Amino acid sequence: MTMNLNQLLAADRTLAVVRAESISDAAQLASALGRGGIRTLELTFTTPNVLEHIRRVVETSQDHGVMVGVGTVLTAAQAESALDAGAQFLVTPGLRPEVAKVARERGVPFSLGALTPTEVAQAVDLGSEIVKIFPARHVGPGYLKDLLGPFPELKLLPSGGINEQNAAEFLKAGALAVCCGTSVVPPALVAEGGWDEITERAKKFTASLS
């Protein structure tokens, strides 16, 4: 059975966010993460040639089973180009109504970035079923618990500063899943193709979530 984004995040409890100047082979990167138990991959518009990398992951999806999306989406044009390249979900660092509009029209899941209760409410109004709390390191797990008071059904995805030491605390506070970044996918390893080490880092990170 093919799982959607919500189901994958609920099952794996994490999403890998890659910020790198270079990706030697995006398909191998996806495979490495999949072997480590992480089946959602967010590439970002801060990486050169990101659309080519998205296409590469999508074209080889039968080999690794990883869902690929794109983050740091700031404009409608970026959203359209990412979806045309095959991106399966969109993520923004803040409230981007024009990105939300494209995603809704194309029927693709998206997660808008927010921090304050007002921004969270606006993200929900724009159709963001999963709200990314960014930067999470500056507010801590307790902040998520507080947000779930007035928004008990909210699906929260904290991002920024999440590591093996604090990830489980964010989940205990009520997060649907957490974003993992350089602790699992360091830019140098992504650039040089250190796939086995990335797999081991992914396994170690996912083991820390329980």
Rank of each mutant, 00 (worst) to 15 (best):
L90S: 03
T92W: 03
S183G: 15
G65W: 06
V178P: 00
H64R: 08
L171F: 05
A121I: 11
T92G: 00
A79R: 01
G140Q: 12
F170V: 06
V178L: 03
E129S: 12
G37P: 09
N6V: 15
Q165S: 15
Q88H: 09
E192Q: 15
P158K: 15
T47C: 12
G174Q: 07
T14S: 12
V124R: 04
E129W: 01
I162H: 05
G193R: 07
T199E: 13
A27E: 07
Q165R: 14
V131H: 06
E105S: 09
S31Y: 00
I162E: 06
G193W: 05
S24K: 14
V17I: 15
L41M: 10
T182G: 15
R56L: 13
F110Y: 05
Y143A: 10
S31L: 14
R104E: 08
G37T: 11
D12G: 03
L115R: 09
I38T: 04
L148C: 10
A188H: 14
A173N: 07
L43K: 04
D146H: 12
T75D: 11
V68Y: 09
D125C: 01
I54P: 01
T182H: 08
R56Q: 15
A136M: 05
I54F: 11
D84S: 12
R96D: 10
N166Q: 10
L15Y: 02
V91W: 01
A79D: 11
G36K: 01
A167L: 05
G71R: 05
E119N: 08
G174H: 06
F89P: 00
A100T: 11
D125Q: 12
S208W: 02
E52D: 15
E42C: 03
G127R: 02
E105C: 02
D12K: 01
R106V: 01
K155N: 13
S61A: 15
V57E: 10
C179R: 01
G71M: 06
A76K: 04
L95M: 13
D25M: 10
A188K: 15
R56G: 00
G194L: 07
V73A: 00
E59F: 02
V124E: 06
F205N: 10
N163L: 01
P135R: 12
L9N: 02
G113K: 08
H138M: 14
P97K: 09
L115A: 06
T14N: 05
S111A: 15
S31M: 12
F134Y: 14
S31C: 02
R39Q: 13
P158T: 14
